[in-house]
């Protein structure tokens, strides 16, 4: 194309991290389940950033993130500035596989995680060095042992309108959506509340205190651990799935019975 649109450098720039990401996937697949082991143990010690980590994180950032977020992480047309987002935002975005983005779309999708927890922590450390931002909290704030009833009430007021009362998720505008919240790593729930990823509003500690956040996490844990007492929950989608069920399986089943009932016996 002869005309240089502002979008064209963006596009050429985006190919770069993708290629790197693809290579990294191959590499990570070789190292196996390191991630699974790392997530549970690594979070507690991430607050201490060693110089090595920062350096390692800088390299990873330059190789995987800089084409969209800029080499100084100050943002480009393709990606926002990361100055001041803190290690927690990095942990959420990269730790849930949302970053690096695979393709531009209404919002970043959850994908298989592409980095080990050490690498994520290293990038987090590097981003945290740029400017102060939300850090990985002490484990007691996302241990999920808080007041379930208070958490449920806060969840209904602050979260349910997008994520649904049972955490089943819901639609937003223009193809965006609030994801379902079943079986999410508590640190990621915490991270989402504090950093407000993408279109989610920020719930800073002045809005929901860390204890209140732990209560919300406790409630989510309660629903994860206690399946619906009434039986299968049909996706917790409410009356729509119930209506479809009664038409297809309820009435459908009974129509099959009526066919048997009125068929001549052999």
């Amino acid at each position: 194309m002869a005309i240089t649109s502002p979008a064209s450098p963006r596009r050429s720039g985006r190919r770069h991290p993708l290629a790197t990401a693809a290579l990294l996937i191959v590499g990570l697949l070789a190292t196996g389940g390191a991630y699974a082991l790392a997530t549970s143990t690594a979070t507690a010690e991430t607050t201490a950033h060693t110089a090595e980590m920062v350096e390692e994180g800088g390299k990873l950032f330059a190789a995987n993130c800089a084409s969209c977020h800029g080499i100084l992480a100050d943002g480009t047309a393709a990606g926002p500035s990361l100055i001041g987002v803190g290690a927690l935002a990095v942990d959420f975005q990269v730790g849930t596989g949302r970053m690096p983005m695979a393709a531009s779309g209404p919002q970043a999708e959850v994908k298989p995680v592409q980095f080990s927890q050490e690498q994520i922590d290293a990038m987090g450390a590097w981003v945290a060095e740029l400017a102060p931002g939300p850090a990985i909290p002490a484990e007691r704030y996302f241990a999920g042992d808080g007041d379930v009833a208070n958490g449920a009430e806060l969840f209904r007021i602050n979260c349910a309108m997008c994520h649904n009362v049972a955490g089943a998720g819901g639609a937003l505008t223009e193809g965006k959506y609030a994801p379902g919240l079943a079986n999410i790593d508590p640190i990621h729930v915490y991270g989402a509340m504090v950093t407000g990823p993408q279109n989610m509003p920020v719930f800073s500690d002045m809005n929901l205190t860390p204890e209140e956040k732990n209560d919300v996490i406790s409630y989510l844990r309660y629903i994860d651990e206690n399946p619906s007492v009434g039986g299968f929950d049909l996706g917790s989608l409410g009356p729509v799935s119930e209506g479809l069920f009664i038409w297809i399986f309820g009435l459908g089943g009974l129509v099959a019975v009526t066919v048997w009932l009125t068929a001549k016996s052999n």
């Binding site: 309108m161 997008c162 819901g170 937003l172 505008t173 965006k176 407000g196 279109n199 509003p201 920020v202």
Partner: peptide, 16 residues
């Protein structure tokens, strides 16, 4: 209905 679905980047509010 309570209109509470706030999208902080687009600044749109959606009624569920």
């Amino acid at each position: 209905c309570p209109v509470a679905l706030y999208e902080q980047q687009t600044h749109h509010l959606l009624c569920p």
